[in-house]
Design a protein around this nucleic acid. Structure first.
Lengths: 343, 343
DNA sequence: AACGCTAATCTAAACGTTTCGATCATGTCA
DNA sequence: TGACATGATCGAAACGTTTAGATTAGCGTT
């Protein structure tokens, strides 16, 4: 900029004024400056600008695993939204690990991001400490966090799972296996509640042997399913509370020589692009990813636009049960499956 | 930092020296400074540091669509690699659009990223201009770019498709439909060459009516498949050069009332996590995503470590044909499919 | 002609670091 | 005891912007 100013024989202040339109500059000087900018190939240094202005026009986004289709979609939507608004997005993957997450958030805060969208967080206290210290707006995604009172977008997980389990019960299933993710994050807690409540509402017992835990990975789903299927009185249906784990479930079923839905019915949380393409077409609880991403982006953009003092806004969106053909009516002949498939 | 210096009754230079370990500072001052840092909760301002040092420890990464499983995986690997190295990653999605891509790259360059990984680029000249102007190392991913002479990691696309088509020919297929992505990026060009060469090598004609183009989206695959299947002499096999489009292909087959592999054999480019879980299990060309991501990251990290003057390095990795059960031997009874499945 | 008003431009101080060179005390050696 | 190397600390300039406030020029009023 100094160089431009020299070539155009003006002060840097005038160059700045022209570039930012913060003051009127005469046509002749404008022309000289623009010419100089072109000749030199000058580009404004955003770092210097950020230092002076105290804003980077960059936000931080952390998700557990970008390869989880739910987060893939959410990241995609959020990235688009901020791109439209002229913001850059720094992406971090925490690998479901709390320490990693802390490190990542610190990394982002160090880089002076203007705001933060955090999907999946662990202990509220730690996050609270980090977030309070950094003075930027934060929106929480996918999970509520007791200690941290800030904008939040979550799914009504309990209701969603309640509906799914109730659907299985209505099909005639009585022993329904449930594979949960690690229990220290709220969606897993809420989803489990949905499972329990649905059973209770139908007058069915909640049996511990039918509930397994995993750490969100395919192999965890595989092992959990193997355990469920080796029970002396094995479940006729399994619900997986997490999408990547259901791959393990399907592989376990195949390896054990069973087939779905003939021998066992399967449903899971989170829809994915291939769900209605191959056989069996999985019955899933679809989250409104587009809406979730957009709402999160809007909440943060609103804060960034200056609306700092509004009280925290908590959004709970509704999931949708996508009924396909991976669950069969119990006792009914196999031919009846087709009729049980709707929409 | 000024504040810390005042509280600790030292100069800012000493504080800086201690934090960075650039000079020895006496135990007593060290202690005073560390105490002050803790009391104040001081965090070094990375923006000011970047301004002074001329490095942001941030890299830019652009991909066409993060929802394409290939790019999802690559992004994941790259993010991890740079995270380990203490770099932040700014992610942009170009939506296969050249102007968007230019904008994104400019956005990243404006923010003074230390390096750039660009997956899929259009016209070489434009990118070349942008990249030459910005003085940062760039590595190209997934696509070579004639005008731009820089580090590159690509797949041997021609060979990979050659192998896949040859496999179909060996199964007895003679009319093989081919669905390509837009032809203006090199992988699509090379893959098409693989298709042509394989047919030629087998003494088969290359028929224009069997080749369709789409723009990478599911709907494009759907339309292309519909066209292929309505030919008077329809193909017995279809190869989709792009993964998202094959979803459209499968849906078209279903909608038209055909089934795979009984009525038509399907294979496609890019593996995905669900490929061997559901029926049909798709035969695919798997890219070594882990290796691709790591190589790209390593090339860039090497440049960032100071190795600026080494000549451009061009890596071409090998794809792997994952043979499953979505392609059947032509003329053979259906029961023979199982035997044709290997590994 | 003196005055004030407006518009255009400039000067210089920030923003929060890093780092070069200067300063100063301390101990060592002849 | 003086000369000198060594080690610790500091002052101040620089990185490339923005912006408040000062300055200047031009012009209409009285």
């Amino acid at each position: 900029m100094l160089h431009v100013a020299q070539v155009a024989r003006v002060s840097v202040a005038t160059v700045s004024a022209l570039i930012n339109g913060t003051a009127t500059v005469s046509p002749e000087l404008s022309q000289r400056i623009e010419q100089a900018i072109r000749d030199i190939g000058y580009k404004r240094n955003a770092i210097a600008r950020s230092l002076k202005m105290g804003t980077t026009r960059t936000i931080g986004l952390t998700v557990p695993h970008i390869t989880n289709p739910f987060f893939t979609d959410v990241v995609s939507v959020i990235q688009q939204a901020f791109d439209r608004a002229g913001y850059a997005v720094m992406l971090c993957c925490t690998d479901e690990d709390l320490n990693t997450q802390d490190d990542q958030i610190r990394l982002l805060l160090d880089r002076m991001v203007d705001g933060l969208i955090v999907a999946r967080v662990g202990d509220g206290a730690i996050l609270k400490g980090i977030v309070d210290a950094a003075n930027v707006p934060v929106v929480l995604l996918d999970r509520v966090c007791e200690g941290v009172d800030t904008d939040t977008v979550v799914l009504d997980n309990q209701r969603a799972v309640f509906d799914a389990i109730t659907y299985l019960i209505d099909l005639g299933h009585r022993r329904i296996g449930y594979i949960s993710g690690s229990f220290d994050i709220s969606p897993m807690h809420d989803r489990m509640e949905g499972y329990r409540e649905a059973l209770k509402a139908a007058g069915l017992p909640v049996e511990n042997e039918l509930v397994r835990y995993g750490n969100f990975h395919e192999v965890d789903g595989y092992n959990a399913t193997m355990q469920l299927l080796s029970l002396h009185d094995r479940p006729s249906a399994i619900f997986s509370a997490n999408n990547p784990m259901v791959i393990g479930t399907m592989k376990a079923i195949r390896d054990i020589g069973l087939s779905c839905p003939e021998d066992i019915s399967i449903a899971c949380f989170d829809d994915f692009p291939w769900s209605d393409v191959f056989q069996p077409q999985l019955t899933t609880v679809a989250q409104p990813v587009q809406a979730i991403g957009e709402q999160a982006a809007n909440l943060l953009l609103d804060r960034l636009a200056g609306n700092r003092d509004a009280p925290p806004r908590k959004l709970a969106l509704k999931g949708r049960l996508m009924i396909r053909n991976s669950c069969r009516p119990l006792g009914a002949p196999l031919g009846a499956i087709a009729q049980s498939v709707s929409a």
